[in-house]
Amino acid sequence: MPATLNTEPNIAAADDFYEALIETHRDLAPEQSGLVNAKLILLLANHIGDLDVLRQAMAHARAGIAPVGDGSAGVAGPPARAAPVGGPRKEAS
């Protein structure tokens, strides 16, 4: 049985946690906050360790948020099923 993400209350001092979280971002520009959040996610993810749990958390976080645009930034999609391409392409010799 894969472990399940705990979404029941689990932090005893919930308000203290929330305050500390916001405090962590004090006086930071949005870009800096972005970096702090990314580091925080990575640290916590490593602490959790269980990929099943992490995937559930990612799915919960993403649920209900519709993508904008067509996602053509080239990030999504499995490698083997897009348009035919030729490569490696030498552009100049």
Binding site: P79, A80, P84, V85, G86, G87, P88, K90, E91, S93
Partner: peptide, 8 residues
């Protein structure tokens, strides 16, 4: 040389 690369 200058290259672009593909995975295919």
């Amino acid at each position: 040389s200058v290259y672009t690369f593909a995975c295919q």
